[in-house]
Nucleic acid binder design. Structure first.
Length: 209
DNA sequence: AATATGATCTTCT
DNA sequence: GAAGATCATATTT
């Protein structure tokens, strides 16, 4: 309970690639959150979506720069947290070389440690599957709010850390919940993993990793 | 100043 | 499968 594996945050270099390369590369990595009271929450990333630069009509980088989002054109490896539908936060990591405005949305994690605290954060969740199986749920479980917008995810209280490599089949599908570029295959997930959201969504390709 | 629009979740049918 | 909750940001008057 008081021993955690050695955590090695991913380097900024890791994020300085195209979003559609970083997104699948993040599968299997650890999302690590240290709360103010010292409790550590951890989950294995099992589902991500890539949002590219200005050539992607669904990306926030095609919109005019706002104070809350201007850092997505800055150096990669920082959190981009924003409120969706007035009620739920979504967590992104800024990726791609500086100036592009690419992001990767973290859609689902497999909860590993701190489940009791996650259940307190998500009283609505009746099963462990409902804890983190969606971008809004994940933010509730991990207590991620706009206060963590612009946080450095290579160091601090919200980081993505290296993990033991595990074998899995890569699922690819169109992104969820958007109205532009709806067919672009930029959602990546661990095929068959029970903590992925929208398990019945048809995938377009599948290959071993 | 006012309105339209979501990278969602929950509950109900 | 569909509707409602709810608000930061962007776009329109």
């Amino acid at each position: 309970m008081n021993r955690f594996p050695k955590l090695t945050p991913l380097s900024r270099h890791f994020f300085a690639r195209r979003a559609d390369l970083v997104a699948p590369a993040l599968l299997g990595k650890l999302l690590v959150r240290r709360l103010d009271n010292g409790v550590v929450l951890m989950g294995r990333i099992v589902e991500t979506e890539a949002y590219l630069g200005p050539e992607d009509p669904a990306s926030h980088s095609i919109r005019r720069r706002s104070a809350a989002a201007q850092h997505i054109w800055g150096p990669p490896g920082f959190a981009y947290v924003y409120l969706c539908m007035g009620m739920y936060y979504c967590l992104n990591v800024v990726v791609e070389p500086e100036g592009r405005g690419g992001c990767v949305l973290l859609r689902a994690v497999e909860p590993l440690t701190g489940l009791e605290t996650m259940r307190l954060h998500r009283p609505r969740a009746r099963t462990d599957y409902e804890l983190c199986s969606g971008p809004g749920k994940l933010c509730q479980a991990f207590a991620i709010t706009a206060k963590l917008n612009k946080a450095d995810m290579t160091a601090g209280d919200l980081v993505i850390a290296e993990a033991e490599k595990i074998q899995f089949a890569l699922g690819v599908s169109p992104r969820i919940g958007i109205s532009k570029a709806v067919d672009w295959p930029l959602r990546f997930y661990m095929a068959g993993n029970p903590y992925v959201s929208h398990p019945n969504k048809p995938q377009v390709t599948k290959r071993a990793v």
